[in-house]
Design a protein around this nucleic acid. Structure first.
Length: 799
DNA sequence: AGCACGCCGACT
DNA sequence: GTCGGCGTGCTC
């Protein structure tokens, strides 16, 4: 008698283990490993993943049976199940969270509880619960004591019944098609007997005679056959209606076929080396280090082509904001219909269809963001990660996985090379390439040996005396004016969204703060509101100071909105576009702004980081960075790396075509190495300098790091618990491990909770992972007293 | 996470 | 005496 081992969708440490279920005879040949099932769990029903089928009974109690399968086919194959196990251990998360992360978002589903009333009187007496509906979803959190009591007594009396059902999730879209129900001979006979005026029926019969393939109703419409004719024919028994799968198509435009480009010697060498590795089926990691404009993309395309030729598949991962229609178009123009795309801006239905297309083997090349690393591609020939240093590759919520590590895991599983591409590789990657762990391939030359743009650094300490508009330096103003005259385009970039536009009372110095978080509110002029960027709290912009009642409230700091206004005021004839989190929130807004700017419907593009990366505007000849420093002020060991990266990327944006580019970087730290070396685009020198800093500070890549975050509504409690954790770590870890903290987070309070953290830096700590796992198991008990503990293995920052 | 069981205080 | 508070422990 087979037993199914199921991981239930209850993310706690006590339930982080398989539960055994019996399989009824009807389900015996249906239930498979990797399928989701609905199972009884205590008094309720939950969804779970079947991870094993076995004949050995390990559970001594009485087994319950699986209620029903959630899927008709497994959603996870063997490889992905194994990957989930590894990921759970690596990220210190529950297996169920990893399983849920691996399947596409839209496919996730939960068992929901519903209540049904049949008695009118009961419905009337409990209007507060049922609100006139005979059936409602039961959400315990939304009900008070008296309501819960009444419900349980009604259930006991048999006046209310409960049942479980799955929440909405993406499913296969279908469309109606028709199929002949009679033989060709019979159909011809019917056709002959038709009255002369039954033209539509005649056309329909003609169509039915053509073959055995189902005919889509839309196809029938092309032959001027309406639904009513089909209905009539169905009644007469000529045909049957069936539902066939319909794929949503996320690609909006058709593409023209493109041909491989001629490679320069460096590109050719890279392609050859990686191809050899693909052909051998070698699990090797490459660092493809190429300056902006050195033609990395063409290298990717040619190695993907080789993988396909070998009968294998390929994966190309790109950062969130660079997955633009332009990029996808370029891939599709080379590989056509075999390309599948995975992006968060796609609807859940589109993602579902792309996922099934990959699983069925119809799509052999996948282009996508972080989560695309989990697609069910089989027989992978190469995995490519473009801009491998990009921070969007690390998931900032549980499970906190690093895409690079998952890619490498899959590379090992499929015995294929992993290619990490970047102009500014992460120090971790570059260091491994230096040690020979990865093979380093360098593209030092830009295509056609284009000159790098001229980069000017403006010392804002000198400028500040300059005048009322000290946001824009004299050099930048002159340069903008000149470019406008020549009808060339300009990008003005602000470094970060935070720190912008807070409100200050000029009379008493009061700054409005968020009541839930330890942070100033940000002024949003278009809404006339003050907003907290951490918890979303909003309040109208006050007319008077909360503290002293003065009306002298002034907006301080620099936000992209304010910059847009300043630019509009100083250059009234220029057309200005703004791109930041606020203007790109709506689906497709991002693409629209890029399109407008590339079609030269605007002269100046103002925005935050997101304009820096991957965009290619040939007519942009000036890029201004308004505040290069903001990144450097962050209390974070990666701040120099981030600043260097960003400035290098931006500098690469200027003058990519035939026109010479100009870059102006405004800063208060003109002597900082990250800024000086970005000026000359000297990555290698930056790498050497920064490595010394990391070595001295015992930071990655010399040390591994773990960040433990504790939070609670009561500050004293968090502090006490943090010290308890510290104590435990000190006892268990070797004296070589560096333990920092506990310290309050930079923003100590968010959403009414206090946050403290402990950082561990280490080189070799064999007991670390068991210690941390234990810690998490204890945390389960602690969570009852309101303490939450989170572990981030290799965090992106120490903030 | 839910949901039930179980053990103590304040009420018809 | 019971109702109901929430601390504790289990869910195949």
């Amino acid at each position: 008698m087979p037993i199914a081992q199921v991981i239930v969708d209850v993310p706690t440490s006590q339930t982080n283990t398989p539960y055994s279920y019996g399989i009824s005879d009807q389900l015996l040949d249906i239930i498979q490993v990797g399928m989701r099932v609905l199972v009884p769990f205590g008094r309720r029903q939950v969804v779970g993943f079947v991870v094993k089928l076995t004949d050995n009974q390990t559970f001594s109690g009485k087994l319950k049976n699986i209620i029903a399968p959630v899927d008709l086919q497994p959603v996870l194959n063997k490889e992905l199940l194994q990957l989930a196990r590894w990921m759970a251990a690596d990220t210190y998360s529950f297996l169920i969270s990893c399983l849920q992360t691996i399947i596409p978002g839209g496919m996730r589903t939960k068992a929901k509880k519903f209540l049904t009333v049949t008695d009118e009187a009961v419905l009337g007496d409990n209007a507060d619960i049922f609100q006139g509906h005979a059936q409602i979803e039961y959400v315990a959190k939304e009900l008070d004591k008296s309501q819960l009591k009444r419900i349980s007594s009604l259930i006991q009396q048999g006046l209310v019944s409960e049942h479980y059902s799955l929440s909405n999730h993406a499913h296969q879209l279908t469309q109606t098609a028709i199929k002949a129900a009679k033989s060709e001979v019979e159909l011809t006979k019917i056709q002959d007997e038709l009255p002369n005026n039954a033209k539509a029926q005649w056309r329909l019969l003609e169509l039915l005679k053509q073959g055995t393939e189902p005919i889509l109703q839309t196809e029938a419409a092309n032959h001027k056959i309406t639904g009513s004719t089909i209905k009539l024919a169905e009644q007469k028994g000529w045909l049957t209606k069936i539902q066939v799968a319909k794929n949503r198509n996320p690609f909006t435009s058709a593409v023209t076929k493109s041909q491989p480009l001629t490679l320069n010697p460096e590109q050719a060498n890279a392609v050859q080396t990686i191809n050899a590795s693909i052909d051998r089926g070698a699990n090797q990691t490459f660092l493809l280090e190429g300056v902006t404009g050195s033609g990395k993309t063409e290298v990717y395309l040619q190695i993907i082509a080789n993988a396909l030729q070998q009968g294998k598949t390929a994966m190309l991962l790109v950062p969130e904001i660079t997955l633009t229609p332009q990029i996808v178009g370029r891939i599709r123009s080379r590989f056509g219909e075999q390309v599948a795309m995975m992006h968060s801006s796609m609807s859940v239905g589109e993602r579902f269809d792309e996922w099934r297309r990959i699983e069925s083997g119809a799509a052999k090349v996948v282009v996508g963001v972080r989560s695309a690393v989990f697609v069910p591609l089989d027989n992978i020939g190469v995995i490519i990660m473009d801009e491998e240093h990009d921070s969007s590759y690390k998931q900032e919520e549980n499970p906190r996985y690093q895409t690079r590590d998952v890619a490498k895991w899959r590379g090992a599983y499929h015995k294929c090379p992993v290619v990490l591409g970047s102009a500014t590789p992460s120090l971790e990657t570059r260091a491994r390439a230096g040690k020979g762990v990865y093979q380093r391939l360098v593209l030092a030359h830009r295509i056609n040996d284009q000159a790098l743009p001229e980069v000017e650094i403006v010392d804002m300490k000198q400028e500040i005396a300059g005048g009322p508009d000290s946001d824009l330096s004299a050099s930048l103003l002159t340069a903008i004016e000149m470019k406008l005259k020549r009808h060339e385009q300009i990008i003005l970039m602000l470094n970060r969204r935070g720190y912008s536009s807070f409100v200050l009372c000029r009379n008493c110095g009061f700054v409005p703060k968020c009541p839930n978080c330890d942070i100033s509110l940000t002024y949003h002029k278009d809404l006339g509101q003050l907003k907290c960027h951490y918890c979303g709290f909003t309040r109208p912009m006050p007319r008077k100071c909360d503290q002293c009642g003065s009306t002298k409230l002034r907006q301080l700091g620099m936000g992209s909105q304010k910059l847009e206004e300043t630019v509009n005021r100083l250059f009234p004839t220029a057309r200005v576009l703004r791109m930041d989190v606020d203007t790109t929130r709506k689906k497709g807004a991002h693409e629209r702004i890029i399109k407008q700017f590339s079609e030269q419907q605007a002269d100046i593009l103002v925005g935050t980081q997101m304009i820096a990366k991957g965009l290619d505007f040939p007519n942009v000849t000036l890029v201004g960075v308004l505040n290069a420093d903001t990144g450097l002020e962050f209390p974070d060991f990666r701040s120099s790396e981030r600043t260097f990266e960003l400035l290098t990327q931006v500098a690469g944006r200027a003058g990519r075509a035939d026109k010479a580019g100009q870059v102006i970087i405004q800063t208060f730290n003109p002597d900082h190495y990250a800024i000086l070396l970005a000026q000359t685009q000297n990555y290698e020198e930056f790498y050497r300098t920064e490595m010394k800093v990391r070595h001295a500070g015992k930071y990655p890549p010399y040390y591994f790091t773990v960040k433990i975050t504790l939070s609670a509504e009561n500050e004293k409690q968090v502090v006490a618990q943090s010290f308890a954790v510290l104590n435990q770590l000190q006892q268990r870890l070797s004296p070589n491990a560096v333990i920092l903290g506990p310290t309050p987070k930079v923003i100590k309070r968010i959403n009414r909770r206090y946050y403290y953290q402990i950082i561990i830096k280490y080189r070799q700590e064999p007991t670390l992972s068991t210690t941390l796992t234990e810690l998490l198991n204890q945390a389960q008990q602690k969570s009852k007293s309101g303490i939450q503990i989170g572990i981030d293995n290799e965090p992106m920052d120490f903030m």
